[in-house]
């Protein structure tokens, strides 16, 4: 009887974390694939387990997109160093034609993003449309090249649930508060 009970307890202890299913309101429910700056294929939930800032952009954008990267760095810099190390940042391009893995690598290098915690990635055209629909990002290709798009930064909890979002590149106090709380409460 005793060994059986131990066996059951072991099985429960082992199975529970593995079977931890995504909540129904997790954005990671979308089955899709990203190509990262390192040339690897990753699911949307590649940073599951960490509070994550997620946004969409295109790399050849002259003005707003570098601003977006800087903006994310500024929001992060306001966090205490220990809390910052728990955060992850995922920037997804909707321009697979131009934003190849090497190109994203160059962009990451130019902006000195922290490769341990940041990923620049790109999605295939149809998949990017789905990710944008999930996040609430609007974008449209322009006839002369480039895109019109909305700037939206979304904060996700470790399971991919939306905690907050902002359209302000700097100084959204409410968003900063939510970000600080999310980074602080994350498991160490």
């Amino acid at each position: 009887m005793q060994p059986m009970r131990i066996l059951v307890l072991c099985w429960l202890g082992w199975a529970l974390p593995a079977a931890a299913e995504l909540p129904a309101d997790s954005l990671y429910q979308l089955r899709t694939e990203l190509l990262t700056q390192e040339g690897t294929r990753q699911p949307l939930g590649m940073y599951r387990g960490h509070p994550t800032l997620i946004s969409m952009f295109y790399g050849s954008c002259a003005a707003s997109c570098p601003m977006l990267i800087t903006s994310l760095q500024v929001y992060e810099r306001q966090l205490p160093a220990a809390a910052r190390t728990r955060m992850r940042v995922l920037l997804i391009s909707f321009d697979p034609e131009h934003d190849t893995a090497p190109r994203l690598g160059v962009l990451a290098h130019e902006h000195r993003t922290d490769a341990l915690r940041w990923t620049l990635a790109v999605a295939a055209t149809d998949e990017a449309r789905k990710i944008a629909a999930l996040l609430g990002v609007q974008y449209r290709p322009l006839p002369e090249g480039g895109y019109d798009h909305s700037l939206l930064i979304t904060l996700l909890d470790p399971d991919g649930r939306r905690l907050a979002s902002t359209t302000k590149l700097v100084g959204d106090a409410q968003f900063e508060t939510r970000l600080a709380a999310a980074a602080d409460s994350a498991p160490r």
């Binding site: 707003s64 990002v137 974008y139 449209r140 909305s150 359209t167």
Partner: peptide, 15 residues
Amino acid sequence: NSLLPADADPEKFCG
């Protein structure tokens, strides 16, 4: 989600 609203806040859009 590409039919951007005509009265979009310019701060929210680039391009």
